[in-house]
């Protein structure tokens, strides 16, 4: 089985199945960490959001980010699933999962992956509100979180 699973899709994913896949036949892994991003409900009357991406480049950038994570930590398996298209509050947007030897590297690698994904992978969110549509602005806090890993 491939050590890396990378999917950009309009379809929902099954977190349990993804965790099972990450842990199945795990040879030297002693830790599995995951992150799931959701469409936040109840903020400013956002009724839905649409994720746009750059087919081809998005997958390439995520592959580069995964390769960078694997160069920094000994990871047996990595899964990144990112959804595109129109999503409702509460729906899953992104899954990041890693299997590694120890929890410290699993936690770190998982956080690194989502931090870099947010600031480097070409996705854009368009929110629907009662007042109309608006593009989500990139946030300095996300940039700062991503920059922590540059040191």
């Amino acid at each position: 089985m491939d050590a890396v699973k990378l999917v950009v899709t309009a379809e929902d994913f099954d977190p349990g199945a993804e965790i099972a896949l990450l842990s199945s036949g795990a040879g030297t892994s002693g830790a599995l960490a995951t992150f799931i991003g959701l469409v936040r409900g109840g903020t400013d009357g956002v009724s839905a959001m649409t994720l746009e991406h750059y087919p081809g480049m998005t997958e390439r950038e995520i592959a580069k980010i995964i390769a960078e994570a694997r160069s920094r930590w000994a990871l047996e398996r990595v899964t990144v699933i990112h959804r595109v298209g129109r999503l409702l509050p509460g729906e899953r947007i992104v899954f990041v999962g890693v299997a590694g030897r120890h929890r410290a590297e699993a936690f770190a690698a998982c956080e690194f992956l989502i931090d870099w994904l947010k600031t480097r992978a070409p996705f854009w969110k368009l929110e629907e509100t009662a007042a109309g549509e608006r593009w989500v602005e990139s946030r300095d806090t996300d940039d700062k979180r991503a920059l922590r890993w540059e040191e």
Binding site: Y54, H82, L117, P122, F123, K125, E137
Partner: peptide
């Protein structure tokens, strides 16, 4: 050549 705003995925 692609032009786009800062990214906001994840």
């Amino acid at each position: 050549i692609a032009f786009f705003p800062p990214v906001t995925g994840g």
